[in-house]
Design a protein around this nucleic acid. Structure first.
Length: 253
DNA sequence: TTTCATGTTCAGCA
DNA sequence: GTGCTGAACATGAA
C-alpha cells in the first residue's frame, strides 16, 4: 500500500530538491552524493520487492526500506514536518514526500537498478510472485523451523513477523515445525495462506481492525482468545522473534 | 523505571 | 556449510 500511495502521488513528477535531515538512515551513500543522484530526476515508476521499495528515476533508482517504524507521507508546502522526518523529497510544485522514521531502522540509498539491488542483497523471490512450486522447493530444503523460513528474506522476500504468525495460524501449522518435515500439500497451503494474508493486509492498508473475523492479526495478544474460539493464544520465541499462536489449532510439531 | 517492539545484520558458537 | 542465540542499532509505548 505504500508503493501504491507513492505511485499515485509521485509517479511522473520531478524531484526538484532533496533534503537530508538525519544522515543516520542513509545506506552506503553520503548526503551530497544522494542529493546529486536524485535532484532534477523524474520519478518514472514505483516498484517493490518484498519489503524494499524502489523509486525508479529517469536515471538510477532510489531505494527505500521502512524498517520497523518507517512511513512515507505527503506534505504540502505549508505543512510543518513531523518530528521524526529524516529525509524530504521536494517535488517541482513544492509538495514534499517525507520519510518519517522514529527508530531509524530503515534505510535510503541509491542503486543502478532494482534487480541489481535484489541480487546484491541476495533477496529471495517476492512473496507475492513466487510460484507454489518454487516455494515448496525452497522451504523443503531447510531443517529450520517453518516460521524462521518464512521470515528469512533470502528464502522469500516480504513476509514480516506478524504476517508469518497469521499465515501459520491460518494454515494450522505449529511455528516450530521443521520445514523439511512438512508435506508438499501442507507447504502449498502455507504458500497460499501467506499470499492471501499479504494481499488482504495490503487491501485494508494494514488496518487490522478491518480484517475479516478469524484473523489472528485482529487480536494478536498472548493469553488472549483464539479468534476461532479454540482456547488461549500462547507466546514463544522463534528465531528470537515473538511468536503468537494457538496451541490447539496449530498442533505441536 | 523497566521491558518490549512490525527489521536487519553480524559475531560467536555447536 | 547449517543453524541458533544474542547483541546492536534508536526511540516510543506500555
Amino acid at each position: 500500500m505504500v508503493r501504491r500511495f507513492v505511485e499515485e502521488r509521485c509517479q511522473g513528477r520531478t524531484i526538484s530538491r532533496l533534503k537530508v535531515i538525519d544522515e543516520g538512515i542513509l545506506d552506503g551513500i553520503g548526503k551530497e552524493a544522494l542529493v546529486r543522484s536524485v535532484q532534477g530526476r523524474r520519478i518514472v515508476a514505483v516498484k517493490r520487492h518484498g519489503k524494499q521499495l524502489f523509486l525508479e528515476l529517469s536515471d538510477g533508482v532510489l531505494t527505500v526500506h521502512l524498517g520497523m517504524t518507517g512511513d512515507l507521507l505527503m506534505l504540502n508546502r505549508k505543512e510543518r514536518t513531523p518530528s521524526h522526518v529524516r529525509v524530504l523529497i521536494i517535488l517541482e510544485d513544492g509538495t514534499r514526500l517525507a520519510y518519517d522514521d522514529p527508530r531509524k531502522f530503515g534505510a535510503i540509498g541509491i542503486a543502478s537498478s532494482a534487480n541489481e539491488f535484489v541480487t546484491e542483497r541476495r533477496l529471495g523471490p517476492d512473496a507475492l510472485q513466487i510460484s507454489s512450486k518454487e516455494f515448496v522447493e525452497r522451504a523443503h530444503s531447510s531443517r529450520r523451523a517453518i516460521k524462521s523460513v518464512l521470515l528469512d528474506q533470502h528464502v522469500l522476500a516480504g513476509v514480516g513477523n506478524l504476517y508469518a504468525d497469521e499465515a501459520l495460524y491460518q494454515a494450522k501449522v505449529h511455528p516450530l515445525t521443521p520445514a523439511n518435515e512438512l508435506s508438499n500439500p501442507i507447504l502449498k497451503k502455507i504458500w497460499a495462506r501467506t499470499r492471501q494474508v499479504l494481499r488482504i493486509s495490503i487491501n485494508v492498508s494494514t488496518d487490522f481492525s478491518k480484517l475479516p473475523g478469524g484473523f489472528l492479526l485482529r487480536s494478536r495478544v498472548a493469553g488472549g482468545p483464539c479468534p476461532l474460539g479454540h482456547g488461549r493464544l500462547q507466546a514463544i520465541k522463534v528465531g528470537g522473534r515473538t511468536t503468537i499462536f494457538c496451541p490447539n489449532c496449530q498442533r505441536i510439531i
